[in-house]
Design a protein around this nucleic acid. Structure first.
Lengths: 181, 181
DNA sequence: CCTTTTGTACTGACTGGTCAGTCCAAGAGA
DNA sequence: TCTCTTGGACTGACCAGTCAGTACAAAAGG
């Protein structure tokens, strides 16, 4: 849907409140009435957009969660998340900005169970296999890795857009593998 | 200044655009005109607020950057960042939300040089001392650690406000120390 | 000692513009 | 016929920023 793409771009640039429906309609090349005909309200449009994008992100992460060992799977999920934000870049910004707004609680809940859940699962598998400490706080660690990748992705897009992705991935994996050389 | 506290709370709750100057004035217990008398514009108020808060954050991190080895200093900076956001909680949300808006470029630049700089310095020291790989991409790693702590702090405040800080710190340090048990 | 002036901080009603959402008459496609 | 889309005019709420005026303390002057 063109409206989705237009909305996510504009919201990434300016934030939700500062983005007008007129602007979304104009960039999408449709009439303003069409937006309201299809989505009912600006808020509903944004809700649908968040839900759809979070679903795609969760699918991408789940698909990436493979590897000989659980820890290899973790590296692979990190790469999957980097690749996803490379492709759907503006979404990373939107997520970072609006994720913790109380207004979008259901979306955040979905993000937690579906996207962070992939990290949590991989980490649990690693704990079960003895690859990490069995008493690791898996939920917090999942959030930490997710937030780390999200922040670095956003910075990459803003400041070093043409740095090879593999290099960024290598740095992150290095951090996670433990810092002693 | 009461206006600062009110503004940061409201902006953390609703975001910059959705926060009205009327609401800020009301929560601060002053007249709307007072806000404009003191700050000139809503944007200038937010700019001053960002600058002030980033300065405090950078000071807190710099103060924490001590330890026998550079890597101990890194752990200590992580704890410093956690403590800072524990005390000035709403600011973490604001930073997370508005940090990448192009409108606040100077503030972001200041954040990068002053706050992320503390992480970068510690990591550089670690690299020089052979405590981490000499060719580590220090800038990216600094962003990664900062973003990790920022995200976890925000989640902590939102979901587990009474979990002991030391436990969160332990999990993060464990992640950084390397995941093999 | 009194009174006039000046500077500073603050006030809140008001204005001008902006924007979500509505409505409608007319077309397009199936 | 029915569903979807268009373009644009319109409304009503909301909001950043303004401005004339208040309050008051500290000089200035006599």
């Amino acid at each position: 849907m063109k409206v989705f793409a237009a909305a996510i771009e504009l919201i990434a640039e300016q934030g939700y409140s500062a983005t007008t429906v007129d602007a979304i309609a104009e960039r999408a090349g449709v009439a303003k009435g069409t937006v309201f005909y299809n989505f009912g309200s600006k808020e509903a449009l944004f809700g649908a957009l968040l839900e759809h994008s979070i679903g795609m992100l969760a699918d991408a992460l789940a698909e990436a969660a493979v590897g000989e060992t659980a820890l290899e799977a973790l590296d692979s999920v990190v790469l999957g998340q980097l690749r996803f934000f490379e492709e759907y870049g503006p979404f990373a910004r939107v997520l970072l900005s609006e994720m913790w707004r109380t207004a979008w609680q259901e979306a955040v809940a979905q993000l937690r169970t579906r996207a962070l859940g992939v990290y949590a699962d991989v980490l649990r598998r690693a704990a079960a296999a003895g690859e990490v400490r069995a008493d690791l706080d898996v939920e917090t660690a999942a959030t930490a890795v997710f937030g780390m990748v999200l922040t670095v992705s956003t910075e990459r897009r803003a400041l070093h857009p043409d740095r090879p992705l593999a290099q960024t991935h290598a740095t992150l994996v290095e951090l996670l593998h433990g810092r002693i050389r």
